[in-house]
């Protein structure tokens, strides 16, 4: 479904992601783990089209994405939960959700998706009219997840779902993306919380300073000594 073929991404002169190849099959749950600054966010932005790929190609369902603007990629069915939530601070909860469904023209589908999000996160329904900036971090994370669900994405890109959340909320967040996966959404998740990510995903890649150094089934990666040492706290 998604294929990155040897992509290189630069910030000005400095190489942030080097020769990265990743593939995600339809229905899979794939994770990329890596330390701070490894290049995880950069890869997500490259897939979404928010940063230019200098070399290499990105394919989605057979189409070459390389020169397509981000909004076309969204319309093709790629959803995005960005790092640090990035909800629109001065839009209300329901407006944030509507922006998530911006490419959906059919009112009926839009309302169905809205119902679905409100069913999964009743807290968002209670706060429908509230401005996003006045919500707690955990509520904003729910909103970011809900906003991505509004698109009914085929592929969902998730950048650090656990960041800044207390453990119980991390579990809720993981439970909600697991649920989406069970409903048929293909997922690519990047995480520093390698333990959680590997426990949830089918397959994983390990990213070190902009390069993929390992790739395997998640349960196998979970058992590897070097992974345990570097990412799972011994």
């Amino acid at each position: 479904m998604l294929k990155l073929e040897g992509i290189h991404v630069y910030y000005q002169e400095s190489l942030a992601v080097s020769d990265v190849s990743i593939s995600v099959k339809e229905g899979e749950f794939v994770t990329i783990i890596g330390a701070n600054g490894a290049g995880k966010t950069t890869i997500m932005k490259a897939i979404m089209g928010l940063i230019r790929v200098k070399k290499g190609k990105i394919h989605f369902e057979g189409d070459d994405l390389t020169n397509k603007p981000p909004w076309v990629r969204a319309e093709m069915g790629i959803g995005y939960i960005p790092e640090g939530r990035r909800v629109f601070p001065d839009l209300s909860v329901v407006e944030n959700l509507k922006v998530g469904a911006y490419t959906i023209k059919n009112k009926q589908i839009l309302n169905q998706n809205l119902e679905k999000v409100f069913f999964l996160f009743p807290r968002l329904k209670e706060r429908e009219k509230q401005l996003a900036r006045s919500m707690s971090g955990g509520e904003q994370q729910m909103l970011a997840i809900g906003r991505a669900m509004m698109l009914n994405p085929k592929l969902l890109l998730i950048d650090e779902i656990s960041m800044g959340l207390m453990p119980i909320l991390v579990n809720t967040a993981f439970a909600s993306i697991k649920k989406m996966h069970e409903e048929g959404v293909t997922i690519l998740l990047v995480e520093q919380n390698a333990k959680k990510a590997l426990a949830t995903a089918d397959r994983g890649y390990v990213l070190e300073t902009g390069r993929i150094v390992l790739e395997d089934r998640a349960d196998i990666l979970n058992q590897k000594d070097e992974i345990k040492k570097a990412y799972l706290g011994g």
Binding site: L50, W71, Y80, P82, R86, T103
Partner: peptide
């Protein structure tokens, strides 16, 4: 709505499917 979203976070507005051009 697209306008307000773009004014608040141009990058994310793009990623949500808004043609910011």
């Amino acid at each position: 709505l697209a306008w307000r979203a773009t004014a608040q976070d141009l990058e994310i507005a793009k990623a949500m499917g808004i043609n910011v051009n």
